[in-house]
């Protein structure tokens, strides 16, 4: 649920930023506010807007109680139609559509060779989504659609995000209704398996995040490496910018919204 809240907050924020970049200010402001409302749901869950302190080795540190469940359900019910309407306003406005369509196009073949991940990859027709391909936790029981678009332009990157926002809202709805049991883990003294290599793959809002840890004979950490989705997607952005005017840079840049420090992580 935390992962989906994070996805919604960031996608909504990104769509608002795209709107601002084509000088269509109403959705830009509304999205900025709604993004905050989703971050505040994470705050409600674990006391931090970015989910810091929530996840610990082996599980989570904060469980949903009925009060929080109701509060969350109420907030989502209030926000969902607003999100839907604002995003419809954004994507149905002819001026916005004219700017988004055909801007920064990347072909499926190029995207495949560059290994684009997340919404940027899906916008080019690559259906890869770690939630579907490597389902962990409860994802195996959820229907995650493929969300593949084919045009590979800013429009496709925006549309994938809009679709994912609405799906994530549904996922949270169903998780709130299903009431899965969460048990909290306390922080035990961490004992890692000696001489081991572990790799994890998760679908973060930008795409696949991979953590890799290598331990020594005593279970101490020898190496720890994080691969951020931006590592793949910066090359997609440079592909988008081939032979385009400089005025298309900001829009393309926002449509990927990559991490500057994530590249060399």
């Amino acid at each position: 649920m935390a992962l989906e809240l994070e996805r919604i907050a960031n996608h909504v924020g990104d769509l608002g930023a795209l709107s601002g970049d084509v000088a269509f200010l109403p959705p830009a402001n509304y999205c900025g506010r709604m993004r905050g409302d989703f971050l505040n749901m994470t705050l409600l869950l674990c006391g931090n807007r970015f989910g810091k302190g929530l996840v610990r080795p082996g599980g989570v540190r904060f469980a949903l109680d009925d009060e929080i469940r109701q509060d969350l359900a109420g907030r989502i019910a209030e926000l969902a139609p607003q999100v839907e309407h604002v995003l419809a306003l954004l994507l149905n406005t002819p001026g916005v559509r004219a700017r988004f369509e055909g801007c920064g196009r990347v072909s499926r073949g190029d995207a495949d060779q560059l290994g684009l991940v997340g919404p940027a990859g899906r916008a080019c027709g690559l259906p890869y989504d770690a939630r579907r391909v490597f389902p962990t936790e409860i994802y195996g029981q959820l229907e995650i659609p493929e969300n593949a678009e084919s045009t590979g332009d800013v429009w496709a990157r925006a549309k994938v995000r809009r679709d994912e926002v609405m799906q994530s809202i549904d996922i949270i709805h169903s998780l709130l209704d299903d009431r899965p049991e969460t048990t909290c883990v306390e922080q035990p003294p961490l004992r890692l398996a000696p001489d081991a290599l572990a790799v994890t793959v998760n679908e973060a809002w930008r795409g696949e995040v991979s953590h890799c840890v290598l331990t020594d004979a005593n279970g101490g950490i020898l190496r720890y490496k994080i691969k951020d989705p931006s590592f793949h997607n910066w090359n997609g952005l440079s592909m988008s910018l081939r032979d385009t005017g400089i005025s298309d840079f900001p829009l393309n840049n926002k449509s990927y919204n990559l991490s500057y420090c994530g590249f060399d992580l």
Partner: peptide
């Protein structure tokens, strides 16, 4: 949309903002 969004600006510092218990 403008109507649905309403005015969202907090009245802080005149009215304090209460943050959740966690």
């Amino acid at each position: 949309n403008r109507f649905e969004q309403g005015c969202r600006t907090s009245r802080y510092p005149k009215v304090n903002v209460q943050l959740p218990s966690r």
